[in-house]
Design a protein around this nucleic acid. Structure first.
Lengths: 217, 217
DNA sequence: AGGTACGAAATCGTATACGAAAACTATGCC
DNA sequence: GGCATAGTTTTCGTATACGATTTCGTACCT
């Protein structure tokens, strides 16, 4: 955690722009001008350009030749596709992690879930969302397949970047979500087979998506 | 198919290097020297550098600061992880495509599968592999979720890049594979539920992986 | 003889500069 | 007044140049 300014400038630029997108400082549709970003960061355009192209490969920005880059994801169907993809990856990641999750992990997840329940009482959607991420991180982090883990994280980032424009907290759904978390933990504790866990985890996210959609209508 | 030299040099470089990796001209472990590639293509290093970083984002090359890039995937466990990830994505892609697959698609797939059966008689593993890709392409191409499609294609590329070092044709398995293809088509024709199709498709690839592993031992 | 330290070569990293393409704007014609 | 067009501005695309870092080879010391 002694993050000492990190490595190359292209990586710094990548991290900086990515953070701004994920945090919502750059909203979808925001136009990313290379020269401007370079000036803001005090770098030259070359490393910034590289950073932008990397973000493009991750789907966070859209790039058009001789025109420039914009933060992608204005389209609401985009959100649906991202959620669907993430539900598949997450389900698999959770199922693969499950056999490796120990009692300490379960306890940690329960603590997070308790905090989430607390957020329901005091209506704190922002904190709730962050805790939700923490909860699922516990369920993923033991996943032995690095590719899948990477895809999960990319999905989360992508979702976060879209969230600022599309996300709406659904209180009614949130309560059910917390209960499903507990159910998931019980399945894992009980050593349920991978298929059951995968399906439950996927369903969990699908239900959240449905809640968003029904509210949007 | 009137590919007119395409767009920017960075994209040309990307396509060129990617093709060499996927085709096996650059095997895993091959060292990609920016200046050398730039000279080969007649470009400057900047677009080449950008291309390499894009390939890194796709997992085709490994990049180390101030050291350089090498074609990734020497590690055999890497192959296992890639196959596992692909089996998950492919399974989902097939299940999502299934309801949209028409009679014409099925017929096309059957034709390809017949050719594959022919390859078994005349022992043509190279053509068999290519046809296998064609077969599954038919099953994917209707997938409405572009993200998942993209992940499938990336997985294929990654697999192809690893294949040159790890791939070994398993004749005994190949026959079973062809039969499973037919079974998959019947499931789709019959309008089986998404879950069944997904599981079958995933199992299909897992079986192939198992065949590789058992032979490697 | 083995290990360490120093130096040279190779390679990456980034800044700067200039050229090309697109977007914008203003002007003149209908 | 609206539209087409030419000129201007903005922004991207890439080449070149130089600095920074790593690696490798060699010589020296123990």
């Amino acid at each position: 955690m002694t993050e000492t300014v990190t490595g190359s400038k292209s990586e710094q630029a990548y991290a900086a722009v990515k953070a701004r997108i994920v945090d919502g400082a750059y909203s979808p549709g925001y136009r990313l001008v290379l020269a401007k970003i370079a000036e803001d960061l005090g770098f030259s355009v070359v490393p910034v350009r590289e950073a932008i192209r990397r973000l493009e490969a991750e789907g966070l920005v859209t790039f058009e030749r001789n025109v420039g880059a914009t933060v992608s994801g204005i389209d609401p169907t985009e959100y649906l596709y991202t959620m669907q993809t993430l539900s598949i990856i997450e389900g698999a990641a959770t199922a693969l992690s499950a056999p490796l999750i120990g009692a300490a992990d379960i306890a940690r997840a329960r603590a997070v879930n308790a905090e989430m329940r607390d957020c329901l009482e005091h209506f704190d959607p922002v904190r709730f969302t962050r805790l939700n991420q923490d909860f699922h991180s516990v369920l993923f982090e033991r996943c032995p397949n690095p590719h899948i883990l990477d895809l999960v994280h990319r999905g989360w980032n992508r979702l976060a970047s879209l969230r600022s424009s599309t996300f709406r907290f659904v209180p009614g759904r949130a309560r059910g979500s917390v209960d499903e978390h507990e159910a998931l933990l019980r399945l894992i504790e009980a050593g349920a087979d991978a298929d059951t866990i995968e399906k439950a985890a996927r369903q969990h996210r699908a239900a959240t998506l449905d809640a968003y959609l029904s509210q949007a209508t």
